[in-house]
Amino acid sequence: MAETKAPVSLTSGRRNFRRRYVVGILVLLASLITAFVAKNGADAPSVQDYYGSLESRLGYWLLLGNTRHCGLYEKGQISPFPISTAQRAMEEKLYSRLGLEPGSKVLDAGAGSGYVAMYMARKGLNVQAIDITPHHLADARKVVTKNGLEDKVSIDYADYHDLSAFPDGSFDGIYTMETFVHADDPVKVLSNFYRLLKPGGVIVLHEADFSYNSQVLQDILRLSHCQNTLEEGGYEELVANAGFKDYSLEDLTDEVLPMWRLFGVVGYVPYQLFKLLGIHYRFTNVMAGVETWLHWGEGRYISVRAVKP
């Protein structure tokens, strides 16, 4: 019987991941040294500090190809590969939740390296992308230009806590892809979003909440600048208080499990070593990946949607 070969895309995805992983192992010692210098595990880093750390920059490149959000999988799927295909599926989920017509103008509030903004542009939306991290902005401008989408995606420095540069009713939709959890003042941010939306405008927030609190969770949230992550049920009240209507929530926790299982498996041995040495707090992403996997079910990945009346 002829040997059955894995699909090219799956094989390629695994090969690319293995290549990045080998390179990552080679620089692990450098990362260890840098971690001692850069972080003491006791501070509350800024968003820029968190994303600018060597561990974060290496980890996002190594595991996610420099894209900074989860992938969406079929329920029950085991393999996380190809990761890029799952990430595009998550972007499609966000796009479908927005439900906007081609030509609509949207705000990408925390655009990272610009991959979500590019997906929305390819679907026909006009995107104003903002971020506060310098290397994110540089990456986003580079990939948007490389893909010839400058006419559909504008990229600017802006903090979603202060969006006074944009007039009232500027957008048909506003979305966050795992960035609202970084808000220092979630109430203020939602108030800004409400002001910037036209009547009938839509917000979609792909974020996390949690049902079980613990010291480990609070340490992870502090070290990744997510101190104001909401408890389960908190988004409905927050969104209603901001004036939005037609609230809906989709629980996507089961559909992101393959990626978090990968984080947990890949990081488990290094994490146990770091714990033995008492330095695990210096490796926020390794800690978050392993602990989230070990305590799966104590938090959720959710898609929140609401409309400005």
Results as ranks from 00 to 15, higher is better:
residue 1 M to A: 14
residue 8 V to P: 04
residue 10 L to N: 01
residue 12 S to L: 14
residue 15 R to W: 14
residue 19 R to S: 12
residue 27 V to L: 13
residue 28 L to F: 07
residue 28 L to I: 15
residue 40 N to L: 01
residue 41 G to W: 06
residue 45 P to Y: 14
residue 47 V to G: 03
residue 47 V to S: 00
residue 47 V to D: 00
residue 51 Y to H: 00
residue 53 S to G: 07
residue 56 S to P: 06
residue 57 R to C: 07
residue 65 G to V: 07
residue 71 G to S: 05
residue 75 K to L: 15
residue 76 G to Y: 03
residue 79 S to H: 04
residue 79 S to P: 00
residue 83 I to D: 02
residue 87 Q to I: 11
residue 93 K to F: 08
residue 101 E to Q: 10
residue 104 S to W: 00
residue 109 A to L: 03
residue 119 Y to E: 10
residue 126 N to Q: 00
residue 127 V to I: 14
residue 131 D to M: 09
residue 139 D to W: 09
residue 139 D to Q: 13
residue 145 T to I: 03
residue 153 V to I: 05
residue 155 I to P: 06
residue 160 Y to F: 15
residue 162 D to M: 13
residue 162 D to K: 06
residue 164 S to C: 04
residue 169 G to W: 07
residue 171 F to T: 05
residue 172 D to A: 05
residue 172 D to T: 14
residue 173 G to T: 05
residue 174 I to P: 05
residue 178 E to T: 08
residue 178 E to H: 09
residue 181 V to K: 10
residue 182 H to I: 05
residue 184 D to R: 07
residue 184 D to Q: 15
residue 192 N to L: 02
residue 193 F to A: 05
residue 204 V to W: 02
residue 208 A to M: 04
residue 209 D to F: 00
residue 211 S to P: 11
residue 213 N to R: 03
residue 213 N to M: 11
residue 221 L to I: 07
residue 222 R to P: 10
residue 223 L to I: 13
residue 225 H to E: 09
residue 230 L to R: 08
residue 238 L to H: 03
residue 242 A to Y: 01
residue 245 K to G: 09
residue 245 K to W: 10
residue 249 L to P: 07
residue 249 L to Q: 15
residue 250 E to R: 15
residue 250 E to T: 14
residue 255 E to W: 11
residue 256 V to F: 01
residue 260 W to F: 09
residue 265 V to H: 03
residue 266 V to K: 12
residue 267 G to K: 01
residue 269 V to N: 08
residue 269 V to L: 13
residue 270 P to Q: 11
residue 282 R to D: 07
residue 286 V to P: 04
residue 289 G to Y: 02
residue 289 G to Q: 05
residue 290 V to S: 02
residue 291 E to I: 02
residue 293 W to H: 00
residue 307 V to G: 01
